[in-house]
Simulated assay, not measured.
Amino acid sequence: MSLTKEQTQHLYHKLLDMQKELSGEKKETESMTEEVGELSNGVDNHMADHGTLVTDRMTDQTVREIDRELLEEINHALQKMKDGTYGVCEKTGQDIPYERLEAVPYARMTVEAQADMEDELDAPSFEREFHEQVKDLSNKETVDQKSSQTYEILDREQDSK
């Protein structure tokens, strides 16, 4: 079922509002040297002050990167509207339900196709091994026993030294 003209118009305006909000003027933060300079002028500086400053800076950069990526997705959706391909799953070619587009107007795929794609992007092997080790440690049968996978790995590492 294709989107109605009213639904498309509603989603178009929703995308424009999101685009305007993300493209609006952002508060420019002080440069790192200015912020550090303020801290270094004081007598009672604490390392935590510098740590907080760095953490705040990293948080700001992360938020800006997420906003930039979201803006790219919104622009892509607006381009698809111009091309007449908006609301069509990029993976399956099926119509994306209006309810999904209402929730995520820049969605490129149906929920099912998105889930399939995320399943295909399997976790890296080190991450999978980590989860197995954590699961192994929480297994009541292996707690306090040297038969767990984690103990085996630690024993191998000690033997190699």
Rank of each mutant, 00 (worst) to 15 (best):
V63C: 01
V63S: 01
V63M: 10
V63D: 02
R64A: 06
R64K: 11
R64T: 07
R64W: 01
R64H: 11
R64Y: 06
R64L: 13
E65M: 05
E65C: 08
E65A: 10
E65K: 15
I66K: 14
D67Q: 09
D67C: 08
D67T: 00
R68S: 11
R68H: 10
R68W: 11
R68Y: 13
R68Q: 03
R68M: 05
R68D: 07
E69L: 14
E69V: 10
E69N: 11
E69Q: 15
E69C: 01
L70M: 08
L70C: 04
L70F: 09
L70T: 15
L71V: 02
L71Q: 05
L71K: 05
L71F: 08
L71W: 02
L71R: 11
L71C: 05
E72I: 13
E72M: 12
E73F: 07
E73L: 10
E73V: 06
E73Y: 09
I74N: 01
I74K: 02
N75H: 12
N75M: 14
N75R: 14
N75W: 07
N75P: 09
N75F: 04
H76Q: 12
H76K: 11
H76L: 08
H76W: 09
H76E: 13
A77S: 09
A77N: 03
L78R: 09
Q79Y: 03
Q79R: 14
Q79M: 07
Q79E: 13
Q79L: 12
K80E: 06
K80S: 06
K80H: 14
K80I: 03
K80P: 02
K80M: 14
K80L: 09
K80W: 08
K80N: 07
M81V: 10
M81L: 11
M81T: 05
K82R: 11
K82L: 05
K82W: 00
D83P: 03
D83F: 04
D83T: 04
D83H: 11
D83R: 12
G84H: 05
G84C: 04
G84I: 02
G84E: 01
G84Q: 12
G84T: 10
G84S: 09
T85I: 15
T85G: 12
T85V: 14
T85W: 00
T85H: 06
Y86M: 02
Y86D: 00
Y86V: 07
Y86Q: 09
Y86G: 03
Y86W: 02
Y86H: 05
G87L: 05
G87F: 00
G87W: 02
G87E: 00
G87S: 04
G87I: 03
G87A: 06
V88M: 07
V88A: 14
V88S: 03
V88Q: 08
V88I: 15
C89I: 07
C89F: 07
C89E: 00
C89W: 10
E90R: 03
E90C: 04
E90Q: 14
E90G: 12
E90N: 10
E90L: 03
E90K: 01
E90H: 04
K91V: 15
K91T: 15
K91D: 15
K91E: 15
T92N: 08
T92M: 04
T92V: 07
T92C: 12
T92E: 06
G93I: 12
G93L: 07
G93E: 06
G93F: 05
G93K: 10
Q94P: 13
Q94K: 15
Q94D: 15
Q94L: 15
Q94W: 02
Q94A: 15
D95Y: 09
D95K: 12
D95L: 02
D95R: 12
